[in-house]
Simulated assay, not measured.
Amino acid sequence: MKSQISHYYLIVDLEATCCNSKTIPRHEMEIIEIGAVMLNRTTWVIDSEFQQFIQPVRHPQLTSFCTELTSIRQQDVDEAPKFLEVISRFKEWIDLFPNYIFCSWGSYDKKQFIQDCAFHNFPYPFTSEHINIKEEFSEYLGVSKKFGMAEALNKLGIELKGKHHRGIDDAHNIASIYRQIKTKKLS
């Protein structure tokens, strides 16, 4: 039986509730933004994007640390739908691209999806493998050091576009990194 060829890299970046102390334990952090792009593996162009804020329920008040880090305002999440509505919309969008591979910078995004889906009793939305682009970037350079996304952009001479720690902007920036390392490997 032939294996199905993936036509897209689904590149996802999440932002979640956070603080610079222990007032929000790691296991209680919640997704407050999903930013995602579908990077076409043939053209290396982004064919579609998804962005949505999410209203947190465990710790509905964003910390000043979170707001300063992400630039996501309290009003953004107060006016946003809750997780179940957003994850359902996100799943519908993903399903428009049945041949994809789920990718993110590191394993954090995958773990946060697993955690939030379990908390809200929603099935994990991804049917594909997961690619950790942070690890692939280190392999591409032939080093063991793990780079932050902004540091990787700098190393490749790519300008950071948008606001760092905003899901949709970081998804676009990660796509730029991945496009460069994948197309350089092919040439």
Rank of each mutant, 00 (worst) to 15 (best):
D76Y: 04
H59D: 03
K145Q: 14
T42V: 13
T183C: 11
W93G: 05
L14R: 01
R41H: 07
N99F: 14
T23K: 14
V12N: 08
A36Q: 00
Q115W: 09
D95T: 13
D109Q: 01
D109G: 07
G167D: 02
S6D: 14
K155Y: 13
I114P: 00
R166N: 15
D170C: 07
Q112T: 12
K2M: 15
I101A: 12
I34Y: 02
D13C: 08
I133T: 02
F119K: 13
L153H: 09
E68C: 12
L141M: 11
K91D: 04
L156M: 14
A175Y: 05
E151T: 13
G35A: 03
P56E: 03
K146C: 01
I114H: 12
Q61N: 05
K161G: 11
E15K: 06
K111Y: 11
E159R: 11
E85D: 08
S176E: 15
H165Q: 06
F126K: 04
I177G: 05
D170G: 04
F113L: 15
G35K: 00
F119I: 13
A152C: 10
S21V: 03
Y140I: 09
I177E: 10
F147E: 08
L14Q: 02
F119A: 09
H165V: 04
G106N: 09
G106T: 06
H130P: 04
E92V: 08
I34P: 00
D169K: 00
Q75L: 11
C117H: 12
K146Y: 09
D109S: 04
H172F: 13
K82W: 07
W93I: 14
S48R: 07
F119R: 14
K185N: 11
E139R: 13
H7T: 12
F90K: 09
F97V: 11
R179Y: 03
S71H: 15
L14C: 04
F113N: 04
R73S: 15
E151L: 10
I34K: 01
Y124P: 06
F122K: 05
A118W: 08
I181E: 14
I54N: 01
P56S: 07
A16R: 05
A36I: 00
V37Y: 00
Y140L: 10
Y124G: 06
D169H: 08
V77F: 00
E136N: 11
V77H: 02
L39H: 01
R26W: 08
K146R: 15
C66A: 06
K163H: 14
K2D: 14
S21D: 12
K182D: 10
A150G: 13
P60N: 10
P123A: 07
V86W: 02
Y9N: 02
V77M: 01
F113V: 11
L39Q: 08
E15N: 01
L62R: 09
A150N: 15
I87T: 01
W105A: 03
M38I: 09
K145N: 13
N121T: 14
D109L: 03
D78Q: 10
H164W: 10
K163I: 15
Q115E: 05
Y100I: 14
L39P: 04
N154P: 08
L141G: 05
L10Y: 03
S176W: 07
Y124Q: 10
K91I: 06
V143A: 12
K22T: 10
I94R: 02
N173E: 13
I46Y: 06
I181W: 08
E30P: 00
